[in-house]
Amino acid sequence: MSINNQSNITITLVPEPKSLTDVIVVGYGSQRKEAVTGSVASISGAKLNEIPSANIAQALQGRVAGAELAQTSTKPGATMQIRIRGTRSINASNDPLIVLDGIPFGGTIADISLDDIRSVDILKDASATAIYGSRGANGVILITTKKGSAGQEPQVAYSGYHGAKDVLKYPMMQAGKYLALRKRAGLNKNPGADEDTTGKTNTDWQHLFYRPAAVTNHDISVTGGTQKGSYKFGVGYYRDEAPVPLSQYNRISLRGSLDQGIGKLFRVGFTTNNSYSITDGANKVYLAIAVV
């Protein structure tokens, strides 16, 4: 629009309905909007942290369309079964590909701290997952972590919670009532040598077996930046106990990212996501470092 020495100019923007040729950045490259409309589900990290969860999968359950999440194990810290494009193979894995900050993640979704998530995008259709080849046949979960920004003042952030867990115990009969019931049913004619026939012994086996359990999470991070770079480092600790003795999950995670410009032409940086977890006495270590 030409100015032509005008001091006041009125400009009206008109919406363009034919925008299917717009470019949307997905994964390693870009695609047209018509190829990904309806095939990408997104959720922010703030919404994920509204519910205290052991991992991202539990926070996503029932909150993302087109993704089936089912709890197949009751062990503390167990990951959920994720199915984005259904069960496609009998022998091969049906788990989706996890891409963390643009790099395929070799660990499980439980190795990523929930407090460090900025956003989660799930690619469901074939056109959206084609850029990852055969690895994206079961769908792709794009996870973006939080990072610092250039010129940001150093900030220290802490988040945590603590909760108690218990089981619903079944009401049990007293010994005298139980013996009377067996006698009436004709089942107490020949008691064993180790059976109490006096009805004076009352033992709450549920109380002796189950224990008070707790779940706790602590996360602390330092974020900041300079004129030409940014950084973010954090450490997290998560512990989930089960009311059943000797069943618990512990995870220690270390994260770090650095992006620094050198001169006008070069920029260097790295991203690392490390975790150490213990489940029922079994140790698991995962280290991931990406250098750019």
Rank of each mutant, 00 (worst) to 15 (best):
D22C: 07
Y231A: 05
A41P: 05
G106W: 11
A110C: 10
Q31Y: 14
S53L: 05
G45S: 06
P154H: 02
V36H: 04
Q206K: 00
A175L: 10
A70T: 15
G186A: 07
G77T: 06
I122P: 00
V14R: 11
D22S: 06
K284G: 02
S230G: 01
K200M: 00
E34A: 11
G225C: 05
P76W: 03
S44A: 02
F105W: 15
A128Y: 02
N202E: 06
I90H: 12
G106Y: 12
Y132H: 04
S230H: 06
S7Y: 06
E68W: 11
V222Y: 07
Q248D: 15
N273L: 12
F233A: 05
L142A: 12
W205I: 05
R267W: 10
K228W: 09
F270P: 04
G139N: 05
Q174E: 15
R63C: 03
L114R: 00
K284I: 11
P171A: 03
P104V: 03
Q227S: 06
S134F: 12
K228V: 05
I220M: 12
T279H: 07
K284V: 09
A54M: 10
G192R: 08
V235H: 05
D204R: 08
I103K: 15
E50H: 04
E34Y: 07
T129I: 03
G261D: 04
P76V: 04
S149A: 14
S44Y: 02
L181F: 11
Y237S: 09
Y238H: 07
N188K: 02
I56T: 03
G234C: 01
Q152C: 08
I11W: 04
D204C: 06
G163C: 06
I103A: 09
L168D: 15
P15W: 01
A164L: 10
G269S: 02
A137E: 12
L168S: 15
M172C: 13
A128H: 00
E50C: 06
L60C: 08
T198M: 04
T145K: 00
L60H: 00
R255P: 13
R267D: 14
V215L: 09
A175V: 03
Q155H: 13
P243D: 00
T279V: 13
T10K: 04
T21I: 08
